[in-house]
């Protein structure tokens, strides 16, 4: 049976018909062609599919598409505003926080959520926050630095 849903994704309203069992990540990738959100596992472990649902980071493979009905979703495609990179995007580029780029969207979405609740995280707090996101390329070293870069930049901007 198909269910009608209406979701605001990156500021744009979308209507769609989905199966009850369809995952949000599938809806984003297959229905909306927003392929920046990646699927890296089948056990909700790797965090590659992390997005923001009503302002909070969630793994979009643990949310059914029907649960997102009426919600606001932000994906990696919605991070930059008016062509200007979000500080976290800038941080990942400046500090070489990505290599193959596959985990990167999820990492950034998790990081943005962290910086919302903790504007000045310590290295330990950053590493702790990244526990649900796997990266196989960087050894996490430069991801930590990228998030520190973004924290610094965002604090500078708001100060």
């Amino acid at each position: 049976m198909k269910n009608k849903i209406s979701v605001n994704v990156n500021g744009k309203q979308y209507e769609g018909e989905v199966e009850g069992r369809e995952l949000l990540v599938n809806f984003l990738r297959e229905h909306l062609s927003l392929t920046g959100t990646h699927i890296g596992c089948d056990t909700s472990s790797c965090g590659a599919c992390t997005i923001h649902l009503n302002g909070h980071a969630v793994k979009s493979c643990t949310v059914l598409a029907v649960q997102a009905d009426g919600a606001e979703v932000t994906t990696v495609e919605g991070l930059a505003t008016n062509g200007e990179l979000h500080p976290i995007q800038e941080g990942f580029k400046e500090e070489h926080g990505l290599q193959c780029g596959f985990c990167t969207p999820g990492m950034m979405m998790t990081a943005v959520d962290l910086l919302k609740s903790n504007a000045n995280p310590t290295e330990h707090e950053i590493r702790d926050a990244l526990e649900g996101n796997f990266c196989r390329c960087t050894g996490y070293h430069n991801i930590v630095k990228s998030i520190q870069y973004a924290a610094k930049k965002m604090n500078g901007a708001t100060a």
Binding site: T35, G36, H38, V76, E77, L79, L85, K93, H96, G101
Partner: peptide
């Protein structure tokens, strides 16, 4: 700084899937 980063950090990488 890496040239390729732009597409990856904006979600525009083009992986097989």
């Amino acid at each position: 700084k890496r040239v390729e980063d732009k597409r990856f950090i904006t979600g525009q990488g083009n992986y097989t899937d």
